[in-house]
């Protein structure tokens, strides 16, 4: 008996689902029909979460990023209106952000792109990546900024850690050294000793793009770096 009832339910649902869903998409709150499930939840194309949480996804909590606003305005104008993102505002925001972007982007681009700007900020970036379970590779970036030949540095690393190391090309056409094994912590002391680079210029880097985090090596493993090999 119960099975039959269930079947009936689901068939009902199937019949009504298309229209219902269409309706539901419009007004999710007040429909109380069973067939509104599964709810079609709208996810922001910019930050992947329900639009009501967009404000907490950006770098600043409480502020909706222009991308989220633009996406919502384009894809769900009703909701956008509900959250008070008016087109005008958006226009202003877009203009502002566009202006910002245009002004800011070349600046930013100058930084990573043009070596001239970056060279004053001489930094060595270390990061380690897990490949398979307990296998790691460490990458060292920025050594060339200190006038060090990467193949030579590579050889030194090979000897010091007795593991494989290679100069590899990154996606942005730069070169970095890849070392097998998780040697991040020892790396600091080796770099300091072998290349006479100030520990202040060495950073542990995690993630990529906007989520990149930089931890000065001096803070992270001060004792290790001093007391290391």
């Amino acid at each position: 008996m119960p099975r039959r009832v269930r079947k009936k339910d689901s068939s009902d649902e199937e019949n009504g689902s298309d229209e219902e869903v269409a309706q539901v998409a419009g007004k999710m709150e007040d429909a109380n029909l069973d067939s509104r499930y599964p709810l079609k939840v709208l996810y922001c194309g910019a930050c992947s979460c329900p639009p009501e949480y967009c404000a907490w996804m950006g770098p600043k909590s409480g502020e909706v990023t222009p991308e989220c606003k633009a996406w919502l305005l384009a894809n769900a104008p009703e909701l956008a209106a509900k959250y008070g993102y008016s087109t005008e505002q958006e226009g202003v925001a877009a203009a502002a952000s566009g202006g910002d972007a245009k002004e800011a982007e070349p600046k930013v681009k100058e930084l990573p792109g043009g070596k001239k700007v970056k060279e004053p900020a001489k930094e060595v970036w270390l990061s380690s990546k897990q490949r398979q379970k307990r296998k790691f590779v460490c990458t060292v970036r920025g050594l060339e900024l200190f006038g060090i030949k990467l193949p030579d540095a590579c050889k030194i690393f090979k000897k010091k850690f007795s593991t494989g190391a290679a100069v590899t090309e990154t996606a942005d056409n730069k070169e970095e050294i890849e070392i097998q094994g998780d040697v991040k912590d020892d790396l600091v002391s080796v770099i300091v000793k072998e290349f006479k680079i100030d520990i202040k210029d060495i950073f542990f880097v995690d993630g990529a793009g906007p989520k990149l985090t930089k931890i000065p090596a001096a803070e992270e493993s001060g004792t290790m770096a001093v007391g290391g090999k």
Partner: peptide
């Protein structure tokens, strides 16, 4: 859960906690 929000009990937190 977003599709079937009635499936389990819910609790609500204040705005300040979202972050």
């Amino acid at each position: 859960h977003h599709q079937y929000p009635f499936m389990m009990p819910t609790m609500r937190v204040d705005k300040g906690a979202i972050k």
